[in-house]
Simulated assay, not measured.
Amino acid sequence: MSYLIFSISRRAPTLFLLLWLVVPAMAAAAAASDEAAMNTGHPMPPLSEREADVLLRKATEAPYTGRYLNNHAAGTYICRQCGMPLYHSEDKFESGCGWPSFDDAVPGAVRRVPDADGQRVEILCAHCGGHLGHVFEGEGFTDKNTRHCVNSLSMSFAPAGSEEEKAAFARAKAVAACTGTAIVAGGCFWGVEDAFHKLPGVCEAVSGYTGGHVPAPGYEDVSRGDTGHAEAVRVTFDPSKVTYEQVLRRFFEIHDPTQLNRQGPDVGEQYRSAVFYLDEEQKAVAEKLMTRLRELGYKVVTQLRPAGAFYEAEAYHQRFAERTGRGACHLAVPRFERRAEGSPAE
C-alpha cells in the first residue's frame, strides 16, 4: 500500500489488480493449520485461512476485492479476531486506493508500529495484535489528514444498534478496567501464559521476549541463547479483582524459582526466572515475596530487573497450550504454605 501503488491504483485499477495477483507476498503466506484458529479464547468464529494470512501473517488482500470497500452502512467495524471495536462508519471515506479507508480510529483501539519494510507504519489491533494494514499522513484527503488503509479481511462489520455492536463496546469497556500489568519470566512461556489465563482477574497474558540487548528478536534468535532475552509473559489484569501481589504469588507457585537459567528440561539463559518491575512499588512487592520464600528455605535465584522493551512473540506462540493441548506444564505448587523441606509454613 505504498504511495507508488496508490498512484497506480487510481489511474488503472484493473491493471493494478492483475499486477497485484502476481506479487509473491500473498503466495508466500502458507499457513500451519492451527494458526487459523489463533483467535481461540476470543468471542469470534475461527479465522478462515485468508483471514489468518492477513491478521496473523501480515499478508495483504488484493485491492478492490474487500467486502467493505464500498460499504456505506452506519455502524462499527470490529476486529475479526478479537471482536473489539476499531472504526466508526462516520470516519470512513473514499480514497480510491482499493482498500477501506478511515481518517480516525476508536480511541485506543489501533496501535502503530514501524513496518518491517523500514518505510511504512503498520497498524495493529491494540487488543490482540492482529495486522490491520498501514496508516499514512499528509495526503490531504480529509481535514484530519490521516488515512488508515485497512484490509477488509481484518474486520467484521456491526450495524448501528445491533447486538453485535453493543457486545463489541461492552468488551471494550471491560478491557478498559484492565489497568494492571506484570511482566515475568519462568521458563517456557507456553505454560506460564496458560497458567495466568486461568487466574481470575487476569484479562490477558501475552508471550514475548524481554531483558536482552537485541532489538525486536524472533524465536530463533532467542533460542540461540545469546540475545540476553528471556521467554517472558506480559500479564494484564483488573486490579479490582486481583492484586499485583496475588499475580506474583501465582508466578512463584507455577515455576521453580530455585532453578538457575533453566526450568526442568529447558536449559539456557532464555529460560531463567525473572521479575521485570514497572515501578518501585512492584519492586517492593517482589522483594517481599522473595524474602518470604527464602525464610521458608527456598534458595531463590529469581532475577529482579526494571522492565524494558517487551517484544511480543510470533502469533503461533500465543495461547499455544490452549490451542494444541501441549505445553501446559506449569502446575501450581503452594510454596508459601509449606517450607522447602515439606513441613507446613508457620
Rank of each mutant, 00 (worst) to 15 (best):
C149A: 09
A174I: 07
E164A: 15
P200S: 05
H148S: 03
D194E: 15
A177Y: 06
H148E: 10
C178E: 13
F169A: 08
N151W: 04
T142G: 07
C203H: 14
F157A: 06
T181D: 03
L153M: 12
I183H: 10
N145L: 03
E163R: 10
R147Q: 11
S154C: 04
G201N: 03
V150K: 04
A170N: 10
A170W: 02
C149W: 02
A172F: 14
C178F: 09
T181A: 11
P200K: 03
A177R: 15
E193V: 00
E165H: 10
W190V: 03
C203F: 11
F196Q: 09
V192T: 14
P159V: 00
T179P: 05
T181C: 02
H148G: 04
C203W: 12
A170K: 15
A176P: 05
K144R: 15
G180M: 05
L199F: 07
E193R: 00
A185N: 04
A167T: 09
S152H: 05
K198M: 07
S162M: 02
E164M: 14
R171H: 13
F157R: 12
H148K: 08
V150N: 00
F196G: 07
T146P: 03
I183V: 14
N151C: 09
L153H: 10
K144N: 12
F189D: 02
T181Q: 13
F189C: 06
S162G: 00
A176E: 15
S154F: 04
S156I: 08
C203M: 10
A172K: 15
A174R: 15
A176K: 15
C203D: 11
A182I: 11
R171Q: 14
F189N: 01
G201K: 00
S154Y: 06
A168L: 09
A170S: 13
K144Q: 13
G201Q: 06
S152E: 09
S154P: 06
F157T: 08
E193S: 05
R147A: 05
T146G: 05
E165Q: 15
W190L: 11
A177G: 10
N145I: 02
A185E: 06
H197I: 10
A170P: 02
A195E: 13
T142C: 03
H197W: 12
A174V: 09
P200Q: 04
E193K: 00
F141I: 00
V150T: 12
A170H: 10
N151F: 08
V192E: 08
G191W: 08
A172E: 13
C188A: 13
A185K: 12
S154W: 03
F141C: 05
R171M: 11
E164D: 13
C178R: 13
G161I: 01
N145F: 00
H197Q: 14
D143R: 15
F189I: 11
A172M: 14
F157G: 04
S154I: 02
K173F: 07
S162A: 03
G180Q: 09
V184T: 12
C178I: 01
V184P: 05
P159C: 00
F169L: 01
W190K: 11
G161P: 04
P159Q: 03
L153Q: 03
F169D: 09
K144H: 14
E164P: 01
A167C: 06
V184G: 07
K198G: 01
V184A: 10
H148D: 08
F196D: 07
V192W: 11
K144P: 01
C149H: 01
S162K: 05
G201I: 06
G191H: 12
V192Q: 00
F141K: 09
V184Y: 06
A160F: 01
F196M: 08
R147K: 13
